[in-house]
Design a protein around this nucleic acid. Sequence first.
DNA 1: CCAAAAGTGTTTCTATTACACCCATGT
DNA 2: ACATGGGTGTAATAGAAACACTTTTGG
Lengths: 229, 229
Amino acid sequence: MEIDKYTSQEKLLVAVDCIIFGFDGKVLKALLIKRGIEPEIGKWSLMGGFVNKNESADQAAIRVLYQLTGLTDIYMEQLYCFSEVDRDSAGRVVSIAYFALINISNYNHQIEHGHEAMWFPLNEIPDLIFDHKSMVIKAKDTLKRKVASNPIGFELLPPKFTLPQLQNLYEAIYEAPLDKRNFMRKILSLDILIKLEEKEKESSRKGAFYYVFNRELYSKFEHEGLRFV
Amino acid sequence: MEIDKYTSQEKLLVAVDCIIFGFDGKVLKALLIKRGIEPEIGKWSLMGGFVNKNESADQAAIRVLYQLTGLTDIYMEQLYCFSEVDRDSAGRVVSIAYFALINISNYNHQIEHGHEAMWFPLNEIPDLIFDHKSMVIKAKDTLKRKVASNPIGFELLPPKFTLPQLQNLYEAIYEAPLDKRNFMRKILSLDILIKLEEKEKESSRKGAFYYVFNRELYSKFEHEGLRFV
DNA sequence: CCAAAAGTGTTTCTATTACACCCATGT
DNA sequence: ACATGGGTGTAATAGAAACACTTTTGG
């Protein structure tokens, strides 16, 4: 049984596309796939799929991401709805773009999923189908803006991370160097990180202390009241 | 002739809904209409309509606004795409919400358009159909955030306005009083307003100088580099 | 002459920036 | 012993916040 009292209205195909960001310690990357269906089969593309009648766009984005990468429980946020009439050369498709932030090491483990997926540094994104390039650009802008006042950068790092790692991340997002002392002071003054006794010893002889982000400490602020950079 | 190679995919109804903000000199308001179609006919609602196959969501929003108010050339921005499966009780409709900023005196002139439209102060919004209330709330949040770093507040005022009027607007949006001297200094230091010789004499005996926003002066900054408050 | 709103400066405080050396450790 | 990246403090500057009186003019 289906209710639908809006007869004689034109329906449209509705899709989701995901800009998946990852950080390898040095540069920000986006995950792309070789498109598996016509048209434009074989070209690089964002991960996407259609929204079914029984699911919301959020649910579709989560499903698509899971089907194509096997990933669950990842940070995802609606970016923008792209709806130019001719944006898809094969039909009228409205696409709701999402951006996702993932800890890149979580995905390299499960690349065996078989899809031809590949990480591209953001300044080496190849030609993409349709309007996917502008989706990536908008996602990058939005990330840059949001990361300054929301605690979402942590989503791109492992649960335990060092301050130099966090700083590298911010430098990659801003494409600008930051002062080590000022950065440390500012981040620590927010009082949302917990310092562990343990040290990361891979990338230096001295070793850098691990920290974890503490959501409880952050939630005191709630209403976007923090400046991270 | 119609191309559409994505056969066997479910299509959905796609709509736009507009949160129209106005400012009467004292309080921020939203323009609502009594819904003219079933279901929920006669209840208060945002202005909305379906997206046709041959138009983008932006175009649909502009069209809907024109059809319902007669207004053209107004500031409008995509807010968010609402797509919960049950958001519309009469069928599966994905709605792309837009917010519009208008100079309220432009619309009071043409209220003869016959639709049962009415301005409501933002803190006196009645019950609205579907998820329209959450659209209004999100629009208000977004406006609050954007107005701090983008020169969009001016869209809510007449072309010529006084600094006290501008301050009242910011106070209404922030729901907080601002210091007159600090506000004036900050706004004028941005160097994007041009002072006219003319004074507004309605609201005080002394009269307040008119200013106009100068888009050329602003465009030097471009990349969201300004803080208005 | 008075009520009502416009306009005007200075000081305090807080946040941001700039900057250079020592520390710990594995090889 | 040395090379490598981690960790630390202080001074200068700029921006934000607090604050009260004078000006204009229509009635």
